[in-house]
């Protein structure tokens, strides 16, 4: 995976200008993953002990985001901002829909209520109760959402004329062999992230937190 990442960073994907130059475009991917994960860890954790309508409403909004027909919005996809925001919204929505669905169990609510009954300070409640409950759920959602996340990455790489991505270059130059190699490497990277990071981490978390 590291080799793939290095190849993609140094050879096949152009260096972005400005921030995150150390990791190249993979830095953006990592940041995107952390933003999605962090957002749903917070919102999902916050909603664990909550059974009201707001949870259902947020889940419905998430589903709407997940069902966003991104490719059909192609007139806007030539512009950089919607190009990134639209697929990101779809991934965010899908992740939220899964997280809020899994975290809806009565046990989650029971543990959070227990923590509140023990009058735990907010930080302690997050560290000892909400985080152990939401973490395995989040990783589970991650394993499901990752293929769609990579689809988004491919799409942006294909459409991002402004940054002259390698995939776009290959497509324009009709270098089919290189395209195949690029897609193999990307698939390898995706597989490694899923089976090398998310699934082992999910199993470890599930074992650690006995959920």
């Amino acid at each position: 995976m590291i080799l793939t990442a290095i190849l993609l960073s140094y050879r096949f994907w152009p260096w972005p200008e400005g921030a995150l130059t150390i990791l190249g475009p993979l830095g953006y991917l990592a940041v995107a993953l952390f933003i999605v994960g962090g957002f749903w860890a917070y919102v999902g954790g916050l909603l664990l002990g909550y059974t009201g309508q707001t949870r259902r409403w947020i889940r419905k909004v998430s589903l709407t985001g997940a069902l966003l027909p991104v490719p059909l919005l192609f007139p806007w996809l030539a512009i950089h901002l919607p190009q990134v925001i639209l697929p990101a919204m779809a991934v965010m929505g899908m992740c939220g829909w899964i997280v809020l669905g899994y975290a809806n169990g009565p046990m989650g609510q029971q543990f959070v209520t227990m923590g509140q009954h023990l009058r735990l300070p907010s930080f302690s409640l997050w560290r000892n109760v909400r985080f152990p409950l939401i973490c395995p759920v989040l990783l589970q959602a991650g394993t499901i959402v990752l293929p769609f996340f990579w689809d988004g990455v491919y799409m942006v790489a294909t459409l991002d004329a402004e940054h002259n991505t390698v995939l776009l270059g290959l497509l324009q130059k009709h270098l089919y062999g290189m395209q195949l190699l690029f897609l193999c490497l990307m698939t390898l990277l995706a597989a490694c992230v899923r089976w090398g990071i998310f699934i082992p981490l999910q199993e470890r978390m599930a074992h650690r937190y006995r959920i």
Binding site: Q110, H117, P132, R208, Y209, I211
Partner: peptide, 9 residues
Amino acid sequence: LQDDVLFPW
């Protein structure tokens, strides 16, 4: 309380 639980982790 009746619904009290120990944290399994």
